[in-house]
């Protein structure tokens, strides 16, 4: 009963297999206390973000501090929604993040399969080079990219952001996926090929489904990285119709003043879809990661 996939399958709502004997040393109460402390650490900043967002301007910053607004208001949300072109910003960000994640994941699936099935001696070199992208300060990549995109006529397009995000996420996605796809028994696709599939066919029809939770995990991870990217977005796009969420957040920090209420409201609006999406994919994400890391 080792695989997490199995655990997850058996663990449908309500049932919790009682099968983790360790950590008995710390009593349940102790563990709850520790978890509660961690939870406080993780969630208190969110709580403050929410409280700030629903405070009327006059109560946002007072001494002594007002912990809960006398009359919670949505004025900050309204202001943000009317001031920024929020639907467009979100749409842009979704387009960039989804495209980048799709492309990266596709590249990664192919390459990870190739590395686990076909690669020879040079695999190690290739794998190390996959980490290169994570090493150089982003600042330095901006100029070369700008020059390339200018030549290609891609400056100030969302496509430019998709490409730069892919350049960061595809290698790391390959790296992560390698573990997932490597774990799919080679006999599976061998059998499929005997049945007349091409290699690609075997990948698509046998390996991919077998590793799908891993693929989903990697997809979400790359999606998240692309959603968070800031410096390329700042440098490579300019017109408002191409603005993405991180840029929209930063531009609320003005020269003269920062409306923290509005900033936090926008923060919530940006974080909310991510959190909802995360909750939706969480199960397969964790399943996927576990599938990939198991020994």
């Amino acid at each position: 009963m080792a695989t997490i996939t199995d655990t997850a399958v058996r663990q449908r709502p309500g049932r919790r297999p009682n099968r983790r004997p360790r950590s008995r040393s710390v009593g349940a109460t102790g563990r709850y206390v520790l978890l509660a402390l961690m939870l406080l650490f993780a969630l208190l900043p969110f709580a403050w973000m929410l409280i700030t967002a629903i405070k009327p301007a006059a109560e946002a910053y007072t001494t002594p501090i007002i912990w809960w607004p006398s009359t919670p208001t949505v004025e900050n949300f309204v202001a943000v929604l009317t001031k920024t072109d929020f639907p467009r910003v979100v749409l842009n960000t979704v387009i960039v993040a989804v495209s980048a994640a799709l492309i990266s994941t596709t590249v990664a699936v192919l390459a990870a399969y190739g590395l686990s099935r076909l690669a020879g001696k040079r695999a190690q070199v290739l794998m190390i080079s996959l980490l290169f992208a994570q090493m150089i300060p982003t600042v330095l990549l901006v100029i070369p990219y700008f020059l390339i995109f200018r030549r290609l006529g891609l400056v100030d397009t969302l496509l430019a952001l998709v490409i730069t995000n892919v350049s960061f996420t595809a290698p790391i996605a390959t790296w992560l996926l390698l573990r997932f796809i490597g774990k799919v028994p080679k006999e599976l696709d061998a059998a499929a090929m005997i049945d007349g599939c091409t290699r690609l066919g075997a990948l698509r029809r046998v390996v991919l489904p077998a590793a799908r939770s891993g693929v989903a995990a990697v997809f979400f991870y790359t999606f998240l990285v692309a959603w968070h990217e800031y410096l390329f977005a700042l440098s490579l796009t300019s017109s408002p119709q191409n603005q993405v969420a991180t840029l929209s957040i930063a531009s609320l920090v003005g020269q003269y003043s920062v409306s923290w209420g509005q900033l936090m409201a926008l923060g919530i609006l940006v974080a909310l879809p991510l959190i909802v999406l995360f909750l939706m994919v969480e199960r397969s994400l964790i399943e996927g990661l576990a599938g990939g890391v198991k020994g």
């Binding site: 100029i143 700008f146 020059l147 200018r150 400056v155 100030d156 700042l234 440098s235 300019s238």
Partner: peptide, 11 residues
């Protein structure tokens, strides 16, 4: 950042 980037890159 924006000014330097965009001018150095010609757009």
């Amino acid at each position: 950042t924006e000014l330097v980037n965009s001018v150095l890159s010609g757009a």
